[in-house]
Computed example of a mutant assay.
Amino acid sequence: MRISGWIVGAAAAAMLAVSGSYAWAQDATKIKIGTEGAYPPFNSITADGKLIGFDVDIANALCAQMKAECEFVTQDWDGIIPALQAGKFDAIVASMSITEERKKQVAFTNKYYVTPLAVAALKDSALTETDPASMAGKTVGAQASTTQSIYAEDFYAKAGADVKLYPTQEEAVQDLINGRLDAVISDKFVLVDWLKNAADGACCKLIGDVNGTETEAGIAVRLDDNALREKFNAAIDAIVADGTYKTIQAKYFDFDIY
Rank of each mutant, 00 (worst) to 15 (best):
Ile236Arg: 08
Ala120Gln: 04
Val73Met: 01
Gly141Phe: 12
Ile81Gly: 00
Val192Cys: 03
Ala107Lys: 02
Tyr39Thr: 04
Phe42Val: 05
Gly53Leu: 03
Ile45Gly: 06
Ala250Gln: 13
Val18Trp: 11
Phe253Thr: 10
Lys205Met: 02
Asn178Cys: 05
Lys67Trp: 01
Gln85Phe: 02
Arg2Ala: 12
Pro167Leu: 04
Phe72Thr: 05
Phe54Ser: 02
Lys196Ser: 13
Thr147Tyr: 08
Gln75Asn: 14
Phe54Met: 13
Gly34Val: 09
Ile207His: 06
Pro82Leu: 09
Ala59Thr: 04
Leu223Ile: 06
Ile3Val: 15
Val119Glu: 10
Met15Ser: 13
Ser44Met: 06
Thr244Trp: 14
Ile236Glu: 03
Ser186Glu: 15
Val240Arg: 14
Ala234Gly: 15
Ser149Val: 04
Cys203Glu: 05
Ala14Lys: 07
Phe155Trp: 11
Ala17Asp: 09
Lys111Val: 01
Ala59Gln: 06
Lys104Glu: 15
Gly9Phe: 08
Tyr39Asn: 14
Asp182Glu: 01
Gly34Thr: 07
Tyr113Ile: 04
Glu230Trp: 01
Ser19Arg: 07
Gln148Val: 01
Ala250Tyr: 04
Leu16Met: 12
Ile3Asn: 10
Ala94Gln: 13
Ala61His: 05
Ser4Trp: 14
Gln26Glu: 07
Arg229Asn: 09
Val8Glu: 12
Ala17Phe: 12
Lys246Ile: 07
Asn233Pro: 11
Asp154Met: 08
Glu69Tyr: 03
Asp237Leu: 12
Gly243Tyr: 08
Glu36Val: 02
Val114Leu: 09
Met135Val: 11
Leu84Ile: 07
Ala28Val: 14
Glu129Gly: 11
Thr247Met: 10
Leu51Ile: 07
Ala172Leu: 14
Pro132Leu: 01
Thr139Tyr: 09
Asp27Leu: 06
Tyr156Met: 12
Ala183Ile: 03
Asp124Arg: 00
Phe72Met: 13
Leu228His: 08
Tyr166Asn: 06
Lys103Gln: 03
Ala47Cys: 01
Ser125Glu: 00
Glu153Arg: 03
Asp225Ser: 03
Asp162Glu: 05
Ile33Glu: 00
Met1Cys: 10
Ile80Asn: 12
Ala159Thr: 01
Arg102Ser: 00
Ala11Phe: 04
Cys70Gln: 01
Leu122Gln: 11
Asp225Thr: 02
Asn233Gln: 11
Leu16Phe: 13
Leu206Gly: 08
Thr247Asp: 14
Pro82Gln: 05
Ala250His: 10
Cys63Glu: 04
Trp77Glu: 07
Pro132Lys: 00
Gln174Cys: 00
Gln249Ala: 12
Asp90Tyr: 00
Ile92Ala: 03
Thr99His: 12
Val8Asp: 10
Ala241Pro: 06
Asp209Ser: 12
Thr99Phe: 07
Thr115Asn: 11
Val56Tyr: 03
